[in-house]
């Protein structure tokens, strides 16, 4: 990879992290409301995968969707505006954190229903095949989501119909309070793919280059008409399941370990860039500063945007019908 491309990966990861820390802060200040699930600690996955996607390729996302959406190229301003429930947000304030979508970027939506994305991803892959557009669809999902029946129906049909779908599992060891060992019958989520004779990988999800290379292979396979693949990315979430929960179910040492320089996907990649690609401290500093500015501008944009007008509550239910409001 060229230095420029490597720095792009770095920039995307940092953007996700800084956006998420800002979101956490804004949540504490009650500027952001509702259910907010942060992606901090898992940045390498969305970044490494989406770096292989074209603008018109599809993704389905989850309740923990900010990272996927940023990596697919979304506008931070409109994202933050949505988190703040503003008219200028991606969903005009109707969706919030769990429901950001941008069809122009192939983002088929963050989803509040665990497992909701699996079969939708198959549908997107199906369209691409029928319409011969050569697009692929990446389905992001957590370890917990593999407990849903929907996940199995999707993997089966994707394989049988050779759909251009890449199942990207973010195995962060927990589904809410449920530790993976208590919730999953197999040790590795990638074992699931075995049953469907699907090419599968189990990788270090905190190593952005490994994610990138693995996803590249799987995406090429999908584009060549060879059907779906499954990538288990091992990772860890730094924050609680949502903002702000007590996290009584996981040992503090475990969190500490995953936050260490050796495990942190960003610190690791930064070190790698400094040591192997002639990236300077100064370059890193500049990138960070520019992101800080961008995130700050996003918050300002959000706060300066109007709240939606009440009448908007009644639009968008259908393409052609506006529902009645209150008298």
């Amino acid at each position: 990879m060229e230095k420029r491309e490597l720095l792009d990966l770095y920039q995307t990861m940092q953007t996700i992290r800084k956006f998420e820390f800002q979101t956490s802060k804004s949540f504490a200040e009650e500027i952001v409301q509702g259910f907010v699930h942060l992606y901090i600690g898992e940045e390498a996955i969305a970044t490494g995968v989406c770096a292989n996607l074209n603008r018109d390729d599809y993704i389905t996302s989850t309740h923990r969707g900010h990272g996927h959406i940023i990596a697919k190229g979304a506008d931070l301003k409109r994202m933050m505006a949505e988190l703040c429930g503003r008219e200028t947000g991606y969903c005009k304030g109707k969706g919030g954190s769990m429901h950001i979508a941008d069809t122009d970027l192939g983002i088929l939506g963050a989803n509040g229903i665990v497992g909701g994305g699996f079969n939708l991803a198959c549908g997107a892959g199906f369209s691409s095949k029928m319409l011969k557009t050569n697009q692929v669809c990446v389905c992001f999902f957590g370890d917990g989501a593999t407990g849903t029946g929907a996940s199995h129906e999707a993997m089966n049909i994707a394989k049988v119909w050779k759909l251009p779908v890449i199942f990207v599992n973010e195995n962060n060891l927990y589904a809410d309070s449920c530790r993976i060992t208590d919730g999953l019958a197999s040790e590795s989520t990638a074992d699931r793919a075995l049953a469907y004779h699907m090419p599968h990988y189990s990788i270090d999800g905190n190593d952005v280059l490994t994610v990138y290379e693995t996803a590249k292979e799987a995406i090429e396979r999908a584009r060549n008409g060879e059907g779906p693949s499954f990538i288990e990315c091992k990772t860890y979430r730094w924050r609680g399941h949502f903002e702000v929960e007590p996290e009584t179910y996981r040992p503090p040492e475990e969190l500490k370990l995953w936050k260490s320089k050796e495990k942190d996907p960003i610190a690791r990649f930064e070190k790698y860039l400094l040591e192997n690609h002639g990236v300077s401290e100064e370059e890193v500093k500049q990138i960070k500063a520019s992101i800080d500015k961008e995130v700050k501008a996003a918050v300002e944009f959000a706060l300066n945007s109007p709240l939606p007008d009440k009448s908007s509550a009644c639009t968008d239910v259908y393409t052609d019908i506006v529902e009645e409001g209150r008298a």
Partner: peptide, 16 residues
């Protein structure tokens, strides 16, 4: 409630 899904932002939610 109005004949719509429940919207996110508080002012719309209260209205619906």
């Amino acid at each position: 409630a109005l004949n719509t899904p429940v919207p996110f932002t508080v002012s719309l939610e209260e209205y619906v």
